[in-house]
Amino acid sequence: MASQGTKRSYEQMETDGERQNATEIRASVGKMIGGIGRFYIQMCTELKLSDYEGRLIQNSLTIERMVLSAFDERRNKYLEEHPSAGKDPKKTGGPIYRRVNGKWMRELILYDKEEIRRIWRQANNGDDATAGLTHMMIWHSNLNDATYQRTRALVRTGMDPRMCSLMQGSTLPRRSGAAGAAVKGVGTMVMELVRMIKRGINDRNFWRGENGRKTRIAYERMCNILKGKFQTAAQKAMMDQVRESRNPGNAEFEDLTFLARSALILRGSVAHKSCLPACVYGPAVASGYDFEREGYSLVGIDPFRLLQNSQVYSLIRPNENPAHKSQLVWMACHSAAFEDLRVLSFIKGTKVLPRGKLSTRGVQIASNENMETMESSTLELRSRYWAIRTRSGGNTNQQRASAGQISIQPTFSVQRNLPFDRTTIMAAFNGNTEGRTSDMRTEIIRMMESARPEDVSFQGRGVFELSDEKAASPIVPSFDMSNEGSYFFGDNAEEYDN
């Protein structure tokens, strides 16, 4: 783990906690998980779902989305002020799938948001429990990260689609708070800032007046979040320049895209947490497990152990491969979309394939898809080993990566060399080191050039047997250095459309 220093740990961010010791953190995270579980059980009762239907990941996603929508204050306010045809701002819903006479049927349900809020609060001892809501947002974000390569979004903001390893959390809503900021990748933060800068260039009043003052505060806050992700002084200094700019424009845009590229080699610290679907927490609570009393951590053995003992089902389209669908969801559960496939294969105990080789589309089923041909199958979400999630980018030494994705962002704290394609990355730096950030740029390029592919990161860190909950005997895996390590390699994943 990167030293926490003055930073709060993510469990504290996750639970809005002030400084807590490890036991208190485990208890408050457990409380959050228990609340999600209780809410899910109650919703299944309301909807009269069978046990099997309640364990269907598509039903879980609909129920999670309903509660997130019920608590989305800004959108609710907007919907009330701008009524649109056929949208009731006070209601929320989605597809629920039921097994009827041996076939899967889709039923569109509609609930009062007020009623959903009441059920959620009741499951969370009367609190709004925003930490639990954020947790579900991060699960949705991790699922998107594993399912889609955001080529269009990258290109629109002047970045290269091969930089997708920097895009963790790119679909997280803005209201996801400190826990959300911690899991956002460098590219995601750059993209958010670039969008602001572009608006400022096109709209003279963007930075002016009372609204402009708020915009400015948001801009500086985002700059500080991004600065905190960088691990070298030169990158941090460049972020200070971007933040202090009187009138952010093209120079800042250039600096930010430069920094994003540099992060492929001088990786930023991005938190990883295993956020599971509500249909995993519900049955665990129903079986009598007391998360608050037992304590829970999002970055240790607990999620692995929970998945070892969970039964989750998914709808499967006619030509999809259930094992591939399982891999997709497994990666999402562990926030591992940008991790090295060699490491993932070792931990999972079966070969993890790149996205383009998977015969599976996303987990969600569109409303126009034919239910007649839908089957369902068990998702295999178990693992051979477990490993500690990392909050750091690993040290800054790398190795060759593949054509589709030119770097990785480690999820697990496991000893290995970190793949990246130096030639491709360095070719993108057209040696432009003039301007006010020239000395920093020169320094950053120097550090990137001296990074050695064969150097090892996370020295001495290994994986653990599932029986080793105290992480007492690390097993340090050895990897084939020459092997392909990137998930979005030469990829044809669908595009994420909101």
Rank of each mutant, 00 (worst) to 15 (best):
S287Y: 03
A22Y: 04
D340C: 05
R162N: 03
E372V: 13
L358S: 06
V456K: 10
H82M: 02
P95H: 14
E53L: 04
S9A: 15
L172N: 04
D88E: 12
N202W: 01
T151S: 15
S478R: 15
H140M: 05
A2K: 03
P477W: 05
W207Q: 03
T151H: 04
S262R: 03
A153C: 06
M481A: 04
I63H: 01
G300H: 15
V463K: 09
S28K: 01
P95G: 02
R384P: 01
T350Y: 06
K31D: 02
V299T: 14
G462W: 04
A387S: 15
L328P: 07
K227R: 14
E64C: 03
L49F: 14
Y97H: 15
K103P: 06
R74D: 05
E434W: 01
K31T: 13
L353H: 15
T134A: 14
A260I: 01
Y281C: 12
K470G: 05
S165D: 04
F488T: 02
R342F: 02
A178D: 10
E484F: 04
R441P: 10
T232W: 08
E494D: 14
P354L: 04
I201C: 04
Q241D: 02
Y487R: 03
M239C: 06
P453E: 07
R391V: 14
G460P: 00
Q308W: 03
I265L: 13
K103N: 15
N124V: 08
G126Y: 00
L143Q: 05
T171V: 06
D421T: 05
A179C: 14
M371E: 11
S287F: 01
M481T: 10
A70G: 14
T390H: 03
S326N: 13
R400G: 08
D128N: 08
I347E: 03
D16H: 08
R8D: 01
G158A: 05
D240H: 09
S359A: 07
E53K: 12
R416Y: 11
L418S: 00
E254L: 08
R243Q: 09
A332H: 00
R384V: 12
M163G: 04
I265V: 15
R150P: 04
A387R: 00
A332M: 04
Q405D: 00
N319P: 05
G30L: 00
G35M: 09
I225L: 09
G209P: 07
R65I: 10
E434Y: 08
A428L: 00
A263G: 15
N397P: 08
L266Q: 13
V463S: 05
D468L: 07
R436C: 01
A332Y: 00
T15D: 00
R342V: 00
D340Q: 06
S326W: 11
N309I: 09
D497N: 13
R74I: 08
I265W: 03
I41E: 02
N432R: 04
K229F: 08
E14F: 12
T411Y: 05
F206Q: 13
H334F: 06
E107S: 11
D88H: 10
S9P: 15
S450P: 02
G282Q: 10
N211H: 06
I96M: 13
N395L: 05
T350E: 02
G404D: 10
L266G: 08
D145W: 05
E469V: 11
C275G: 14
Q12F: 10
L56G: 00
G180S: 10
I425T: 15
Y40E: 01
M163V: 14
Q409S: 12
Y111D: 13
E53S: 03
E81N: 01
L353S: 00
V463T: 13
R117Y: 14
R162S: 06
D497R: 00
R74C: 05
K77G: 06
S392D: 02
I301N: 10
M222P: 01
Y496F: 15
A131P: 13
T62S: 13
A129Y: 11
I197Q: 06
D290I: 08
Q311C: 11
E254H: 06
A85K: 15
T437L: 09
A472D: 06
S50G: 15
R355Y: 04
L276A: 10
